[in-house]
Design a protein around this nucleic acid. Structure first.
Lengths: 190, 190
DNA sequence: TTGAAATTAAGATGATCATCTTATATTATA
DNA sequence: TATAATATAAGATGATCATCTTAATTTCAA
């Protein structure tokens, strides 16, 4: 294998390990040593692949955005109606409920952490949020053409972020179940 | 003035300064030096008043809980109906909208930060959340006796946390206005 | 095959941090 | 007023951290 390719593979290993670490811990509590251990890369070598910690964050967010876009375009291809796509979106926290009660929403918690004092990093992290938002606006536009799709999309995000946040604080999976059901009812009532 | 009283005053100065710092920054990014600067207490003297950083957090949360209880019992005394009290609660983010878009919900962001890897501290911070939750359960019990007050209280918290989180991420006050209106409509429809 | 480029790896550097120690100053009270 | 308790303040301590330097090793292309 060519070295160039091998390097790309190593970068991906680092990114994947950091992705999980970032979700389970936090950006500011996660050290290069943690990343080195998690990805089984010698500590001193990390700075060759990624000059700074911010660079790693950038790569992780790019990776996440790519994964999210892939998931959403899969849904677009396989799920026929916008209502069913929206229902599918609403169920994400339900499918991830074990993770949500332990670590919260990966997008929401990262944004909140970086939002306070690291505005440059917040802007990077916000990309993830925007991918969902734009997709939701598209779905609502198709689903209920007469209504304000932007407002509906934001409301969906509010309820999704809210239930993840409260379920995480209370460490209670039942909250996810109850609140996702309520979102489903709301969607069907539109 | 007696020295004992003076010391209590100094502690209060430290707690108030830390309260704001905690909201504007974050627990893990806030250093003793930051606290010293913000409260105008010599760096080396902080550890006399509070042995550890966790002790300061404990004192700040106790202070916040006290303020919250005071606010809620004021409402209980001055607002006649449970519906109007609930409406008053829903309006908190609206009254604080400048702060919310800049720093999020002070309770929610602290809980999220501490929830991931500092479970002992999370338990402390969660007290704030529980004060609101218990009060909300009481209000909903009085407001709609037939219904599941716990579930309604959680739903209220979900929407409140959700709108704060999304408004903070998007840095958009309009989201607060729109979503608070929606909560008001929901309350009146119960 | 050989020289250059890419990669690996360890350790150095310097900054920041929470906490602890110690010495001095102030205050209360007997 | 004397002395014990309380408070102040500076600096030491040791740990952790991101980033940088340097040298060794591997890979690639001429």
């Amino acid at each position: 294998m060519r070295a160039r390719e091998k390097t790309e593979q190593i970068k991906l290993v680092i990114v994947k390990a950091t992705d999980e670490l970032l979700y389970h811990k936090s950006y500011n509590l996660m050290s290069f040593s943690d990343i080195a251990e998690a990805s089984d890369i010698p500590r001193g070598n990390l700075n060759y692949h990624f000059k700074t910690k911010d660079d790693i964050l950038l790569a992780v967010v790019a990776y996440r955005v790519q994964q999210m876009n892939k998931m959403l375009s899969d849904w677009d291809a396989s799920i026929n109606s916008p209502l069913e796509r929206l229902l599918r979106f609403a169920q994400i926290p339900l499918n991830e409920k074990n993770n949500v009660v332990q670590h919260g929403c990966p997008i929401g918690t990262l944004n909140q952490e970086l939002g306070k004092v690291q505005p440059e990093l917040k802007a990077i992290s916000k990309q993830q949020f925007d991918v969902f938002k734009q997709w939701l606006i598209k779905q609502f536009s198709d689903f209920v053409p007469g209504q304000d799709a932007q407002k509906l999309a934001v409301h969906m995000l509010v309820r999704s972020q809210g239930l993840s946040a409260v379920a995480f604080i209370e460490e209670d999976k039942k909250i996810i179940e109850t609140e996702v059901k309520a979102i489903e009812q709301w969607l069907k009532s539109l």
